[in-house]
Amino acid sequence: MSRNRFIWIGLVALTWAAMMSFGGVAAETVMLYPNIFHDAPASLERARDFLTVSGPSDYFPPLGASVVLLGVATTVLTWRDRRLRWWVAAATMVFVACEFLFSVVFFWPRNEIMFVDPVGAHSPQYLRQVAEEFVAGHRVRLAGGAVTAALAFTALLRWARTAAGERGARTTVTPGRSDGSGG
């Protein structure tokens, strides 16, 4: 398989995973968060009951790991191409900063407080404060996901345009012939 094929696969996979991650965060923002955070701590208890079989913690960690791995692999694959290098590297860095590191530092401790610690371990006022902080901080994750997806998609478009231009340059057309055979 040619290097260009690997670059194409990497860019498509990275763009798809980044868009899936951003789409998931956006959907969570408009469908789950209004129900989870509207009346803390009572709404947090209902969310615990609702999210017993599956929840965001089952979906986002494996998807996030795939975005990081695909981002690193695609950065390596595209490093020699100046037109793509920084788009892919930036997408990877934004995702790692806004989705992974920010989540570890900011969201994971708040998730523990709201959804793992025993019910009644924290005062209702403290739970409301933590829920408000979580929702406010979520904007960073949402913006980071949007920027990551946009950067990855831009790299994919730049590669596709270049690849299409190279294919067009290899085809010579003789006047009067439309089949591109040149003869």
Rank of each mutant, 00 (worst) to 15 (best):
47 A>R: 07
161 R>G: 15
6 F>E: 06
54 S>Y: 09
32 L>N: 12
164 A>E: 10
161 R>D: 13
56 P>C: 03
87 W>V: 01
85 R>P: 04
61 P>T: 02
155 A>L: 06
135 V>S: 10
173 V>N: 05
50 F>M: 15
10 G>Q: 01
169 A>E: 13
37 F>V: 11
28 E>F: 15
31 M>Y: 10
135 V>R: 10
69 L>W: 02
104 V>C: 11
138 H>M: 04
114 M>N: 11
155 A>W: 01
134 F>S: 11
45 E>L: 10
56 P>N: 07
22 F>H: 09
92 T>S: 09
164 A>K: 04
119 V>N: 03
155 A>V: 02
81 D>Q: 12
64 G>Q: 09
137 G>Q: 03
1 M>E: 05
155 A>C: 07
166 E>M: 11
7 I>K: 09
55 G>D: 05
110 R>G: 06
67 V>N: 00
181 S>T: 12
92 T>N: 00
121 A>R: 08
121 A>E: 12
13 A>C: 13
111 N>G: 13
183 G>T: 13
68 V>K: 00
141 R>N: 08
132 E>W: 09
64 G>V: 03
173 V>S: 10
98 C>Y: 00
169 A>N: 10
173 V>E: 11
107 F>S: 11
123 S>I: 05
146 A>L: 15
152 A>Y: 00
58 D>C: 09
132 E>V: 07
30 V>K: 07
131 A>K: 04
47 A>E: 11
33 Y>E: 13
174 T>C: 04
22 F>A: 03
137 G>W: 03
173 V>I: 13
146 A>T: 06
30 V>R: 06
